[in-house]
Each structure stands twice: as structure tokens, then as C-alpha cells.
Simulated scan of single mutants.
Amino acid sequence: MRITERTPERIAERIPARTPTRITFVPAPVRPSHGSAPRPWAQDPFAQAMRTGRGPLWLRRADGHRHPLDVERWCAPPDAADRSLLARCLLTGRPVLDVGCGPGRLVIELLSLGLPALGVDVTSAAVARTRAGGGVAVCRSVFDRLPGEGRWGTALLADGNLGIGGDPTALLARCREVLAPGGTVLVEVEPRDVDDRVTVRVEDASGWSGPPFAWARVGASAATACAAEAGLAERERWKVDGRAFMAFTRLS
């Protein structure tokens, strides 16, 4: 895509809206038998949803509250809010690491726009879906050794992925490690001020749930504080269609 006006809003307008790509997978495996040890995101309802492209799914807290996971949106082409993220990636022109890429809609779009991008996800079904759609992804944790450490221009934490591991400061510090000097972390935060560190399970409509794991939900104020501890400086805040985002820059 030829960029003539270098503002995120103008660039986002020029990113074409795309129709969904039909991806067919083999049927999902049966649920783990008694005595097996399912892993969060990798052997639970989320993995099955990545194969089918359908929800509904929730993160169920120990107190009974649950937070919806927007599986259908994640498996669809990028929407206007997503394009605001993509535009900022294009402005830098530097390679992008999508942390917790899921089915890969952002990686696939960035590659189609000519920008190097790699997805990282612990769910093999999500990685398979990303690759089937034309993306590039590896199946591992962001805390594992990753390709190109210290050379990425941008790290993405979209779709609530700032919650990975239940410790946003540790996650942002890890993102800082994989960035090149002057690199950027683009983060989706909660649209309201919240700072929750909780234990959750992924649950589907039938009541099937995976194992418990630590998760976090943070708004802009908490994200800024965590980023500062991690050696990142806030650069920008913006909202599109009710979703909230922030940009942080590696200080050194």
C-alpha cells in the first residue's frame, strides 16, 4: 500500500476492508479423558473454538462472574478498530510481533500490506488457523525464546492479551526485551479504569471448562503504571468503536 498521508487515521482509511476467508478444519478432538492434564488455551474450549471459528466462550472467574471472548470477531477480517492498530504498524514500517495472535487476522493483514509480521500463540489450533489463512506463526509462549529477539519494531497485545500470565508488568517487560531500541508496544486496554488480577477458566456454552490460570484486566491508568515499571513510556491513547488502545515506546 502506498502511503501518502502519514497519520494513523488516514492510513487506516486506506486499508481495504476484506471479506472473510473460508477456512475448513478437521473436526476437533474429543475432550481430554479423566486423568489427563489439559493446558490453558491449548487443550480447552478455546482450542476447539479456533478449529470451528465459533463461540460462545467466556473467561469464568472463581466468584462466578464471566467475561465474554469474541471468537467470531477474532476469526473475521480486521474491523475499523483493528485497522487503527494496523495503521500505526504501517507508520513505523518495522517488523511486527503479534503476541497471542489467535487465528491471526492481524498477522495475515500486515503481511498482505507488505509488512513483515509473526504471530506467537500457545494454541496449536490458533497457529494452524493463522497459517491456513496465509499468515506466519509459531506455537510457543511469549516467555519462551522467540525468533528475532531484540529486533522487532512493534509488539502487539490486542484483544485483551495484556492479561497474559496475570502480570502485565512482567509481560510488558518481556515485550520490551524482544523490541529493538525505540520499538513500540501497541496495547488494547479495558475501556474503563480497572485493575483486576484474577484466576479464570475458559468455558463454553455447554459448561465445559479448561484448567485455571492467572489473568489480568487493566485499563489505561494501570497499564501506564505497569509500562513505566517495565521501562516503557506512554506515547498515545485512542479509542475506536468502544475499544481502547495505547502505544508505549521502549526507553532505551
Rank of each mutant, 00 (worst) to 15 (best):
R10N: 10
I11P: 01
E13W: 03
I15S: 09
A17Q: 11
T19N: 09
I23E: 09
A28C: 08
P29R: 13
V30L: 13
G35H: 03
D44K: 05
T52Y: 04
R60T: 11
G64V: 09
H65P: 00
H67I: 13
V71S: 09
R73L: 13
C75G: 03
P77Q: 09
R83D: 00
L91S: 06
R94G: 00
V96N: 06
V96Y: 02
D98C: 02
G114N: 08
V122G: 12
T123M: 01
V127I: 14
A128T: 10
G133M: 12
G133T: 06
G135D: 08
V142D: 06
E149T: 14
G150H: 04
R151G: 03
N161S: 10
L162N: 09
L162R: 04
L162Q: 07
G166H: 01
E177D: 14
A180F: 01
G182H: 03
T184E: 01
V185L: 00
P191D: 14
T199Y: 00
V202Y: 03
E203N: 03
E203V: 15
A205I: 05
W208F: 12
F213E: 11
V218P: 04
A223L: 08
T224H: 10
A225W: 01
A227S: 08
R237M: 08
R237F: 07
K239L: 04
R243P: 13
M246Y: 02
A247R: 01
A247P: 02
